[in-house]
Design a binder for these strands. Structure first.
Lengths: 348, 348
DNA sequence: GTGAAAGCGCTAACAG
DNA sequence: CTGTTAGCGCTTTCAC
């Protein structure tokens, strides 16, 4: 760093100054930096030399104001330290980079007030598009975002009463197949550790769990169905509650990786072994699912690919993008075993 | 969404239109929305009513251009799906939100060319500050960023020849204590799976490993020291190479969580048990470290807290922020055991 | 307390 | 091919 006085008011050269230094008009400088219109090689060289000498960097602010488009896109996730969102974000970032866009990241923490704040903020920033894992609230905020010309894309969850293109996953199918797998192993008391029913990720997965039971003719024991938030704060307590049922489950389905983490922790803390004492499966194929012993059977959502598609949809297809549902893949590993003959069975 | 024709050119109301609708001057509207200067209650009400009617949202672009400051900060990490960066980012986001700032997220993938691209881009966006995990290259780009008045803060790694405030961690101390722990357990062939020596995170951790050996009077076996990238791509192969040494190590220190993940995977794949056949410890306390059986002994970096501090430093202290080094906490769990009497020992 | 006016740095016609 | 000009939407003196 060569600046001897870092506290002086920074003087970032303007386009006008570059033009003067190069002895050309502003329009020419603009053409050079935006790569539009034709500029003779000599003129271009002069401009570039002057720009380099002055450490000139164009201002995206001014450009955006003039062009009425920033090249930014907003991404609202719940919690970026959750590997699912991390993978998704990597996908968005990769896709955005390829398209020459920036992403402004926001974490709502699943809180509607925070979400509203971020939507408003992103609108003020005049982002070209917003990719969000919506809480389901703030319909009016989303509405004004769209009205103002911002392409909105919802990820993972559909929101009732709003016609916004979405990229969804086959939650019902995934949960159903996971449940069928457990049922086929002979389990009849399968605990379900799920998310809030207001989120479609919560309700659809629960629906899949119930559907599988129905089709197998196995009754669902409502005391084995516990709903909690999809975040770490309440997960462990809920998992413990489930395991403490009067007649405990012999297998357990966790509706996302955070819940799975809590469930596995709770199982361990009670001295139970997987899968001998307790079978378990979960949504989300996070790195640790393969690493624990035994490795966990999961319903894998293609998080990275979803992020890539999401960015592409919101950036290139715009408001006209059509919703799509991506499949989840059930990956059988070794965390579930056939029910022991002597396991408690309802009515026995 | 009430708009019947989503494809029409979006008409976001301007401040001038709000002013006209409210029958006041633009200056007044500005005062209302920026909460600066005094406005009579009645006038304010009129303005707010008009604004609501028109779905007016101020433009951060225009404001930024005029004020010469966006309220944005750039964050350049390596890979946001890596839990360490995810936690760090959560900290930055929390802190930024509190200070009314937005975060533009970039993932360099540890690639200097990508990093340069992002630095240039963030400069063009005129962010108020940049928090980065630097690759060590692109000194000139960092220099022009600072010259233009952007506060730069390096995280995790120091860069030689550049005087930029940084938030570092006690890498040497952490690696040293981890190694001492293994040495105290009687291990004399400790494998080191580390990062590139160009990164201070790489070199300092290796230095800690070597220092502990030196002080214990135990020679370092260079064939047990393998350096690789800190990313997933090459980690597994390097871990395997280490385990395949002619005389294999009895314990292993992985220099970050990705390397630890790879090491644990490789250990498993070779049918070795932890800690009976192979002790292991690593840097980074990620969720899975507690979840695997046995849980892994780690040197924990306070990622979230670092993110919080980083944002605060770059946003409130500015260019004058003084570098700080945060301690790492060694958390002993059960992934390391005393060396077996019959383990291969050099010269025996 | 409030209005008018001058730009912030850039792009996009439009002439030449 | 290149220079000139009129704003993009907002903040900020400066009068009133």
């Amino acid at each position: 760093m060569t600046d001897s006085n870092p506290r002086r008011k920074p003087v970032n050269a303007t386009m006008r100054e570059v033009a003067e230094a190069a002895g050309v008009g502003m329009g020419t400088v603009s053409r050079v930096f935006s790569n539009e219109g034709a500029v003779s090689a000599t003129t271009r060289a002069k401009v570039e030399a002057a720009a380099a000498r002055l450490h000139y960097r164009p201002s995206a602010l001014a450009r955006g104001l003039k062009r009425q488009s920033t090249n930014n896109v907003g991404l609202i996730v719940t919690d970026i330290s959750n590997n699912f969102y991390g993978e998704f974000a990597q996908g968005v970032l990769a896709s955005a980079k390829e398209l020459g866009r920036h992403v402004i990241l926001c974490a709502s923490g699943e809180d509607p007030a925070t979400e509203r704040e971020y939507v408003d903020l992103l609108v003020e920033q005049r982002v070209d598009g917003i990719i969000a894992f919506p809480t389901g609230a703030n319909l009016d905020a989303w509405d004004t975002a769209r009205r103002i010309g911002i392409n909105v894309l919802f990820a993972d969850r559909a929101v009732a009463g709003v016609d916004v293109p979405s990229i969804l996953v086959d939650n019902l199918g995934g949960a159903r197949r996971l449940t069928e797998y457990l049922l086929a192993l002979g389990h009849e008391r399968i605990g379900y550790l799920g998310g809030p029913s207001e989120l479609t990720t919560g309700s659809q997965r629960e629906a899949g769990y119930r559907l599988a039971h129905e089709q197998a003719g196995v009754p669902v024991h409502d005391e084995l169905v516990v709903r909690t938030r999809f975040t770490r704060d309440t997960a462990y307590a809920s998992a413990t509650r489930l395991l403490n049922s009067a007649v405990p489950p012999t297998a357990l389905l966790a509706a996302n990786n955070i819940l799975g983490e809590a469930a596995l922790g709770a199982i361990r803390d009670r001295g139970l072994r997987v899968p001998d004492d307790m079978s378990m499966v979960m949504f989300d194929d996070v790195p640790w699912a393969r690493l624990v012993d035994p490795p966990i059977t999961v319903a894998a959502q293609p998080a990275y690919a979803m992020g890539v598609s999401a960015a592409r949809m919101v950036l290139t297809e715009g408001a006209g993008a059509s919703s799509q549902t991506v499949p989840v893949e059930v990956v059988i590993r070794r965390s579930a075993a056939p029910r022991h003959i002597d396991s408690p069975v309802p009515g026995s």
